[in-house]
Nucleic acid binder design. Structure first.
Lengths: 289, 289
DNA sequence: AACAATTACGGAATCCGTAAAAATT
DNA sequence: AATTTTTACGGATTCCGTAATTGTT
């Protein structure tokens, strides 16, 4: 059985090219690496190096072994982190999402639940959702699409509906709803982290300009002291920081189909019983409008 | 970094259920396993076991860790074997196939080549072909279908064409070729190991009976002292053992499309230069008929 | 002269087995 | 009484660093 530290030395050597630099990188002495690579060759029963008095290089087999060792080391590392993640997931039910809106509601729920609930502050691309669940980095992922695999299942929660907040004297505000087309060419204040909504507004509103703000505090300040329109959804009300009573804008829902997203909760089938009360709470507090 | 022997002990324990049996299975003493599992918990920083004075059981995390460890150990094992296989493949070009016919020709080639060529005696299902190549267990796989992946490529070699050897006095022998339909209900002597041909004849010949023989020697003997028809192909001539001059049967090619198979040579793109002369030899010796 | 790899030697850490203890079935 | 786990102790293996050697650039 090959010892991991030998694989580590091999991988390091394949990157540095000399035993001296390898030793330096691993914080050991040269003789240690020399002996290590000799032992690795001996354990495998294979020649990995071409040796000259002052120079040592990988053979073709050695390069292949280093390539395989790199992957194996990554999996080795993943083992520890996954075990620890699983252990953590047993005590804390972690919720993440691909959109900010559902996370706001989730945070609300978390405060009124006796269970240990952790709601992440950042969100991930939807193509990482499956990985987050199977590696137990999250127990619940809120997404705009269903995820169906042999070990995963999804449950529909409700819809997130986009609205735009316009200055009350703008002519587009003289109707109960608007369309993306009617927002053509306008400039919007947008928070940097709005997940999948970003591609929606960029795709649907022609020739629009988006002033992305990284800091939520800066976003609030600029909205207060300017007339730029900004977006919100039916889930924005759960944002504890967005309470701006002195807003001169009016909220106008967007009629387009693309302005609505169905939200699903995805989780491991093995966790079905654990997430059940959380799903019930999310559905119970989902706004009707 | 988790030591492999600790993972091995965990995997063994998850199967045996007690430390005593685990120790027995691994040929070590109980205290060794006790300390090992304590160290594993310590290294991972996670509780894997529920301990009672006379009983130790896996926690949920422990079961999950054992599951992950099982897979990791398999990959760990695969590392060594793959490095050794790669090393071996550098000196010996190994050819395998999904059909016996192309292998016969390959053996012929191997004798007239200066290069170190190894031709396997058994053949594998076609769905294992990709794995054989990527794990370097074979450098060349002869199959009836093309294999196309980012790292693999296939080259057409020729066709293998099925024929049936009938007693010269049978009425079906009164024509230059026959069809599968005309063989309806007959009984055939067939070698057990004929690869993908087996499903062809079973599917195409209605109500036929197949007398499968495991031993080639028994097959030859029965063909000699009986009148049962048997199959051969345009590649059978390369079989050094099948030279039976005193055969009372006549060879009749089968007309159906299903009685012909295109044969491709698949290999890693990285091996293209190495296999080039072998492919040329295979194509050069491929029979025209 | 500087650098890279290897070998030799001694110390330190670790891992194992034997023996003994504690507790359960 | 037999089985299972755990701890204690001593020995043996192994792994590492320092020092010295060899050979190259």
């Amino acid at each position: 059985m090959i010892e991991p530290y030998l694989l580590e030395e091999l991988v390091a050597f394949s990157r540095t090219g000399t035993l001296a630099k390898t030793a330096q990188q691993l914080h050991v002495t040269q003789p240690t690496v020399t002996r290590g690579m000799q032992k690795l060759e001996d354990d495998l029963g294979v020649q990995l190096f071409d040796r000259q008095p002052n120079r040592i290089t990988l053979t073709a087999t050695g390069r292949h072994a280093a390539e395989l060792a790199t992957r194996l080391m990554a999996q080795h590392q993943a083992f520890s982190t996954q075990v620890q993640a699983f252990d953590h997931a047993q005590r804390v039910l972690t919720i993440t999402a691909t959109l900010p809106g559902p996370l706001l509601l989730a945070r609300q729920i978390a405060q009124h639940t006796d269970q240990a609930l952790s709601v992440t502050t950042t969100f991930s691309p939807i193509d990482q959702a499956t990985d987050l669940l199977t590696t137990h980095q999250a127990t619940l992922v809120l997404t705009q699409r269903e995820l169906q695999t042999p070990t995963l299942e999804s449950r529909y929660l409700g819809r997130e509906k986009l609205a735009v907040n316009l200055d009350q004297f703008m002519y587009q505000a003289n109707q109960t709803t608007v369309t993306f087309a009617e927002l053509r060419g306008m400039s919007f204040l947008v928070l940097q982290d709005i997940g999948s909504w970003r591609e929606v507004i960029q795709r649907e509103i022609p020739q629009a300009k988006f002033l992305y703000q990284t800091q939520p505090s800066a976003f609030r300040e600029i909205t207060t002291y300017s007339d730029f329109p900004y977006f919100s959804t039916n889930l924005s009300r759960f944002d504890p920081h967005v309470a701006t009573p002195t807003d001169h804008r009016v909220r106008r829902p967007i009629r387009d189909a693309a302005a609505q997203m169905p939200i699903y909760a995805s989780y491991l089938k093995a966790d079905r019983q654990r997430v059940k009360p959380v799903l019930a709470a999310l559905r119970a507090h989902w706004p009707d409008d």
